[in-house]
Amino acid sequence: MNDLIVTNNLSKEFGSFVAVDRVTLRVEAGEVLVLLGPNGAGKTTTIRMLASILNPTRGWARIAGYDVSREPENVRRSLGLLTEHHGLYTRMRALDYLAFFGQTYGLKAEESRQRAQRLVEQFGISQKISLRLGEYSKGMRQKLALARALLHDPPVLLLDEPTSAMDPASALKVQASIANLRSSKRAVIVCTHNLTEAEVLADRIAIICCGRIVARGTLTELKKDFLGDCIMELRLAQSVDGVLRHLPTDLCLLERGADWVRYKVSNPESENPKVLKAMAEANVPVVTLAEVPRSLEEIYLKVVENNGKKRRIVA
């Protein structure tokens, strides 16, 4: 295991307010973890603690092996941070801006220039480098901020609300850019409350609510944990009448239509081939066999709602 981000009971309190409560995470190289949660859930505070900007009240965290409390400069050198607000210096031009940040990371001028050039080309802003950053569109600004975070080729990337307040087209472009950042050497945490973005980007998802991690796992694991077994839809080229008797007897049928049937299955890898085999043996032409899509939204709402109820009961 090559865990580049490790936290253990990481907590942050502001006076009596608990912003982050015992967050324990592991993100290994090559993995993208999406930290999903509503506004004020503690995502940004977690990210700021990981970036050694805020000091944890309790617990610890390591970034690329460096402790966030004891080795802040090494931690910051090992990570790229995309903040929720791009925070660009609007009077500067893209290459000057990246050169400035290159200097802060101790990059040599020539190396910094080459990397900056490569990044502006990679993110499709090379045509706009003569403009001042104040003249950039929101999407371009966010891409440049992403380039800033990647300039020193850090092993850890922390992306806080990378597409917040962006129009759908720009958001898609930035999401595509982030998706391209996957690397076997890099661990990425993306904070968002955008469910589509989470589905697109995540290898694993951790749902944070009121400062606590309330659910975690891959999308499949979360679906299974919170929505139960997956539901398959078998669509035929003929009526389902008279066909059902050919299906495996232990199959849990849920509903049917004229030419389709839906069933629940705990282990689709072993059950679905049996279904297809049965149809083939009965000479029933199959059009499709697919999982009925269940969105992350359902899981998210369920988790957040449950957590809200628990909180109310405790209160």
């Binding site: 700021r48 607000h85 925070g87 802060t104 990371y105």
Partner: peptide
């Protein structure tokens, strides 16, 4: 106020 402080604070500058 201009939100440019956080990226600066996230650099290794002491």
């Amino acid at each position: 106020e201009r939100h440019s402080l956080e990226p600066l604070l996230a650099t290794p500058l002491t």
